[in-house]
Design a protein around this nucleic acid. Structure first.
Lengths: 141, 141
DNA sequence: TTGCTCATGTAAGAATTCTGACATAGAATT
DNA sequence: AATTCTATGTCAGAATTCTTACATGAGCAA
């Protein structure tokens, strides 16, 4: 209760920064950055997504995403066709190695998120989720 | 209500990203980045703070903060003594120009935060703040 | 005093991400 | 059919931030 004047925007930034720090620690043994993990995570959820779509889902530019995808390609964690079957979008997907690495990494990341929420009751968690969703919706509009 | 499986960590990141985007738009006319704004904001709250302390408060490294402070010094928005009076820390403070610019910028940033919270009731806001504080506390521990 | 630890400032370089720009493919419009 | 619009991929370069490393000043303990 150091100071109740703290603004919500600052709290969001603080929580996100700390969460990122903990995730980095958890992911370092797997040689993954948070951005790379987010990318792999999204790829499992939405196989065949384009780099531009991936960028939107992970809050980066498509230029940054493409340079990151190149690294993941080099490591054999993801795969893309050489040429698009239609349009310009190159559908990207996880390889078997990527799927395995993601599973191992997610186990640890999930523990980080669990610990973050450890002080919250069921109803607290619902209220937090509702509040954040309302913020997102308002900022999008 | 697209998907209730979304994790809280992702929501935090999404909210923070969108908030940053809106803040960037609001600050661009003032030629300030979000990081610079955060720095000025903290300086008003804690005049005489060191660059390292400023870095901690704004979630950056002290190296990044020092290079940012150099820009703000060049623009005459902040001031630091040439030599420390004691120890190594150089106490930093806002100039009159920095105070004025901050006031003008904050008016617009406050509107962004207001709009973010526009869909929340009083009790929703309290619950959101409580939830975020609990997350921060758990991640710090 | 001496040595140890910690915090701060700083320098050099790498890595990441972004901005601006351009080409291309499909969709939409006229 | 021709044009315009939108989305995607890509290139080049800049800007930001981080990593690693080192020097210095203060506090503390032996």
């Amino acid at each position: 209760m150091s100071n109740s004047e703290v603004q919500v925007g600052y709290l969001v930034k603080q929580a996100q920064s700390l969460l990122r720090l903990r995730m980095e620690s958890a992911l370092r043994p797997h040689s993954l950055t948070v951005s790379q993990y987010s990318c792999l995570h999204r790829l499992r959820r939405e196989p065949g997504i384009s780099a531009a779509g991936l960028a939107r889902a992970t809050f980066m530019t498509r230029q940054s995403m493409n340079s990151m995808l190149q690294q993941l390609l080099d490591r054999g964690l993801v795969e893309r066709p050489a040429r698009p079957d239609s349009g310009r979008a190159l559908p990207t997907a996880l390889t078997a190695a990527g799927t395995d690495l993601l599973s191992a990494a997610q186990a640890e990341v999930d523990r980080v998120e669990e610990s973050m929420l450890s002080g919250l009751s069921q109803s607290d968690l619902i209220a937090l989720t509702r509040g954040l969703n309302a913020c997102v919706k308002a900022l999008e509009g």
